[in-house]
Design a binder for these strands. Structure first.
Lengths: 233, 233
DNA sequence: CATAATCATATTGTAAGACGAATTAGATGA
DNA sequence: TCATCTAATTCGTCTTACAATATGATTATG
């Protein structure tokens, strides 16, 4: 924003470097339907000719798209559009908020509350079985060392929503689960088992509302516990 | 995966190019707490010396980080970590799924169901007022041209969750709202107004469960309508 | 002395050229 | 036919040079 004399304000011209413009042109191939996920892009030399830019500019753009996991480049194999986004982009972006625990907790909440409702609609019997196993594992743990099973419970649910757009966010947010786990000094295995069992039963019933209710209770409880620790620091 | 003789399998060595390694090194500055959001990074020349790579390699890495909106580069101004991620990365990534309407619909659902619950906890009176205005706008529209007010309703709620991690996803997914809007040939203004009013009342009551319930109903209804159109094509 | 204009410089942006690295396809030999 | 080797394709990395942008310092002017 550039404030001029009087009350007129002009938006500053957006930095629009050549690599950015190249990114947009390549993305447009997808948006327009000219190319689809899985398709091969022209080689670097061809793109350089087509777009009329230097090789470093093109490579900066391709590196950017690869960081976003929109494409994958292989020596001699060329460059292809991916079929879906993995977890690396979100993981890198999440590093910006790594110190903002309340934001992480609530991002997890927002996501998991929505995902558990979707999971209630579509979870498979196989995944239900796996869910139950994690609950048993937590119940049977003898040294309060059940963080992995706890995380696996949440991961199975999240993955049951079966959504390629959201999928890449699940593991990065679950990695923050480990960080949070370590903050909780008092572990309450039986409380966790109860929460998980309630959620599991709702999923067995395929009831999104019930699933939401129990997950909300569980995550609110964990949130309060964590924020307590956070505020004591 | 390389399949060796017998049943032993080895993971192929991950492509770990120098720009990727540079990205990781720079992200590690954040993760380790050495630098924080808003801080200035060393200049390109300094980073080249520190990391022992060529300038194009460094620039590819910085372009990647900029595409992820983790950093912003300014000529002569240097390179800074951002405070939060904007909507561009997610928007580009979403282009990969642009043709997969069911996935988009459900990603929106997953997110909006979680966000409305969080919004119920923390929405301001000002935003409630704005919400009401959008409902009145839709109710008073005379030519079924209320897509923008409809979208604004959803946007206000999503932003009320007030989460910097999720915020960057809201606008890209709401842009898909326009695309979906155009698919719906029969507009049912009164039904929309009813759904929105129910959601609004739940938010006034600051009740996450009620908010979830009404949003789930609304979005399921929209989903069914859209999938019907989708399957007829 | 204060303000505006100009110049120098810091830092990023772009290009060209060269060579290296990785991988696949094709040719050759057993 | 299969194994091995070679050539070619394509991306990966580096060096060098110049351009563009924006800020700070200096100079000129009122």
């Amino acid at each position: 924003m550039v404030e001029l004399k009087g009350s007129v304000e002009l938006e500053t011209v957006k930095r629009n470097t050549l690599p950015k413009q190249v990114v947009d042109s390549i993305v447009q191939l997808l948006v327009s339907g000219q190319l689809k996920p899985g398709d091969k892009l022209p080689s670097e030399m061809e793109l350089i000719d087509m777009l009329g830019v230097s090789r470093p500019v093109l490579r900066e753009a391709l590196s950017s798209l690869e960081a976003l996991e929109v494409i994958t480049r292989k020596t001699r194999g060329g460059t292809h559009f991916n079929n879906k986004i993995g977890s690396n982009p979100f993981s890198v972006m999440l590093a910006l908020s790594i110190g903002n625990l309340p934001a992480i907790i609530e991002a997890r909440m927002a996501l998991e509350l929505g995902l558990v409702a979707m999971a209630a609609e579509k979870i498979t019997n196989e995944k239900l079985k796996r869910l139950k196993e994690t609950i048993d594992e937590i119940a049977g743990s003898v040294d309060n060392n059940y963080g992995e099973a706890d995380k696996e419970f949440h991961r199975i649910i999240a993955l049951s929503a079966d959504n390629p757009i959201i999928e890449g966010m699940i593991d990065p947010l679950l990695i923050t689960h480990d960080k949070m786990d370590r903050q909780i000094r008092e572990r309450e295995r039986d409380v966790t088992v109860q929460f998980h069992t309630d959620i599991y039963n709702a999923l067995v019933n395929r009831d999104p509302h019930e699933a939401f209710t129990h997950m909300y209770r569980h995550l609110s409880y964990v949130r309060n516990k964590l924020l307590q620790v956070y505020q004591n620091e």
